[in-house]
Structures are given as structure tokens and as C-alpha cells.
Design a protein around this nucleic acid. Sequence first.
DNA 1: GTGGTCTAGACCACG
DNA 2: GTGGTCTAGACCACC
Lengths: 119, 119, 119, 119
Amino acid sequence: MGLEFIFDDNKPIYKQLVEQLTQKIILGVYPAGSKLPSVRELALITKVNPNTVQRALAELEGKNLVVTKRTSGKFVTDDQEMIKNMHKHILKEIVDGFLLDMEKLNISKEEVISYLQEK
Amino acid sequence: MGLEFIFDDNKPIYKQLVEQLTQKIILGVYPAGSKLPSVRELALITKVNPNTVQRALAELEGKNLVVTKRTSGKFVTDDQEMIKNMHKHILKEIVDGFLLDMEKLNISKEEVISYLQEK
Amino acid sequence: MGLEFIFDDNKPIYKQLVEQLTQKIILGVYPAGSKLPSVRELALITKVNPNTVQRALAELEGKNLVVTKRTSGKFVTDDQEMIKNMHKHILKEIVDGFLLDMEKLNISKEEVISYLQEK
Amino acid sequence: MGLEFIFDDNKPIYKQLVEQLTQKIILGVYPAGSKLPSVRELALITKVNPNTVQRALAELEGKNLVVTKRTSGKFVTDDQEMIKNMHKHILKEIVDGFLLDMEKLNISKEEVISYLQEK
DNA sequence: GTGGTCTAGACCACG
DNA sequence: GTGGTCTAGACCACC
């Protein structure tokens, strides 16, 4: 569990890769400080072109979730704080987006909650 | 409220138009059976290229939310049942998507609810 | 003047492109709010592969110096404040780097200044 | 002070080693004619792969700043003149590079000087 | 015509 | 074997 990569056609693959790798980092599938599979390995695992993997990893590096140690590979940041923050950030983003959607449909928070409870 | 159209540059404008028009129909801003503004008017209101408006309306026709009466214009369907179903459908889609996201982050429904209640 | 692009082999071309475009923006060769040449045009001007141009522009977008208006092209940000800040930022970076180098060589600021004045 | 070696991951380590060893020679930390630590020692001190140290020293030999005396090790050149020239050369390079950067940003030498004086 | 994405494949520097 | 860069060329969505 935790190692599959599935893509759909709606979003660019590299963005989906960013999301899924971020998730795996947040959930500890790739723990803080651990070495990521090499670009080429990831390309094999995900069945995606190495350039595309590279691009996704570059984004993760931009967000400081991943650091590159030249010639020895790419690693998850060892800054656990940052990972936690990312977790919170993503959570907030999703929940806020959800509530916004609900608002657009004129549905109150209470209705949402009772709806969820019934499920 | 209810007549503004706001677009961002991330998603195709015609899709955003579809969404926003659907919303207005669902919420009764454009009630069942009522006449929609003409393509040209909508283009003016939304400050969008008429072709784009056309494309969005075509999609809405495809979903049977809008019907064209030749010579007199485009109208919201008068099938109230269909509108209600659409409402439920959209609601379900959003909530399910939300719950799926939560699941990916390993967050239980209960946690979500308590999180929402705190807000 | 101001429109040539020259590259050397020490640094990646896309980074040099980022630098040179940034300069042109800062200096007003490409003023705030103005449209940039299209990716393909820039590729022709610079004699570089369009993908490489794309990559450089993506970086500039990441720094919010450039914004993309879908289908109509890429534009310099119209936030003049941001451009000024970038100017200051770059200036500071260069000067600080320079002073650091001088420090490593045990050369005082005063010596530097008198050296510059002689030139 | 004078014996630490610090590397960042942006530039090749061997180049950084070359720079830092050159500095130490110029500043007299390793005086003209003195014996350098052995490759292995340097590797330990710098926590760098011996191959990398070897490569850096080879470059310094190429510049005639370091000479190998077979069987007894590597020594800083005893040609003090050469060391002084190297000093000047490096200085010139840095200052010229700096002035070039300033020129690109349309900043006159006078402005630079007054800027430095304020700091 | 605009930008965006992806692939395939090659070459390089590094350690 | 690691990542980084670049090219050529193709295809897509959008307006």
C-alpha cells in the first residue's frame, strides 16, 4: 500500500505527481530525511517520462519539501516542522475550497455537517 | 447578488461559464422556464468572447438544462425535477470529492466533522 | 539597444535567460504591464529551443514578475512596486556577494572604495 | 579561523575546493613553500572524497600554485611573485565582474561608491 | 496564433 | 549511477 501512482487525464501528469508525492511525504510513506527513488526509478515506477518526473521533483524542491544532494540523489527534507505545516496548509486549502463550494450553492455549514453525519 | 461573473485564468473560461450558469440555474437566479439573456448580451455581461459563451451554452444544452426555442432564444428547462436532480448530483460530486481528498490524507469523517464544527 | 541575448557555457541557458529577462524588465526594456514576445518569438530571437524559453518564463512566473493570460500571451506584471523591490533585491544580492568576496580576501571596504575611485 | 572548509551544493565541490585552497594560499594560511596536508588528510579535514581532493589539487598544480615533490608530498609554490600575481588577478576578476553587473543594471561607479560608503 | 504538456533521446558533470 | 540540461518534434486546449 502507498506506492501506487495513478493518473487521470484532466490534470497535467507532473502536477498529479507533485500532489501524490506530497501526499506520500506528508503521510510518511517517504519519511523526513529519507532518500527518494532516483528520477529514473520513479520514471519506471510511474511509467512516465523521466523529464516529467524531473519537472515534478523540481516543483517539490521549490516548495522545499525535497532537497537534492548532488550525485547522491534527492531526499525528503528533514525539517519535520515544514512537513507538518505543509500538511496543515493542504488540509486548510481543501476544507476552505469545500466550504466555498458549499457557500456558492447556498448550503450552510450545519447542513453540510448533518449531511456528512448521515453518510 | 447573483449576476456577477468572475473568472480566473487557471481553468478554461467556457468551463467556468458552464459552472456559473449552472449554479445560477440551480439557485433560481435564472428560474425554470425563464428566458436566458441572448448570447450577445451574455458576452457583454461576462466580458467574454461570444464564441466562448456559445460553447458554454452548447454544453448546457447537452445536459438538457437549457433548451433553444428557434427564433425566440434560449430558455432554462422547465423541468423542475431535472434541475433538482442536477442540484443533488453536483452536491454529491463535491461532497464525495471532498471525502475522497480527506481519505487520501488519512482523515476520518469524524475528524472532518469536528473540524468543521470548530470553525 | 537592450534586445540582444548572449549566452555563455558556464551556466544553464535557461538561468541566463531568466537573468537577462529580469534585467530587461527591471530596466524597463519590457515595461510593467507590457506584453512579452511569444514563447516562439523569444525562441527565435534568442536562438534557443522553445522549451528552454518556456522553462525560463515559468521561473519568472514563479517569481511573479510575469503573468500568463491564457491564449493571449505572457505579460510583465503590472505591479510596479514588485519590480522595484526586485530591483533592490538584486542590487543587494550583488553588492553583498561582492563584499563577502572582498572579506574572504581580507580587503576592507575602504580599500575597495579607493580601488574603485582609481579606476 | 582559516582552516574550515564549507561547501554548498550549487557548485561542484572540487571547484569550491580549488577556490578555498587558493584563498588560503593567497592569505598565507598555507605560506609559500610550505607543505600541504596529504590528499588523505585533506580528504578527512574537508570530509570530501579523496578523488575530489585529488582533482582540486591537480588544478592548482595546473596553475603552478602547487608543486608535487615526488615521494615527499605537495607543496605551495615558493614563487612569492606568482602568489602576489594570483592575488591581483583574482581581485581584478571579482571587481571587474562586479562592475560589469552594475553596468548591466545601469548603475554608475559613483553611485556604487556612495552606496558602499553608506553601508 | 497563443501557451502547455509530454516524449524520446542525447550529452554532460559529478563523485 | 546520480541529477541536470537541452533539443527536436509532436499534440492539445483555447479563443
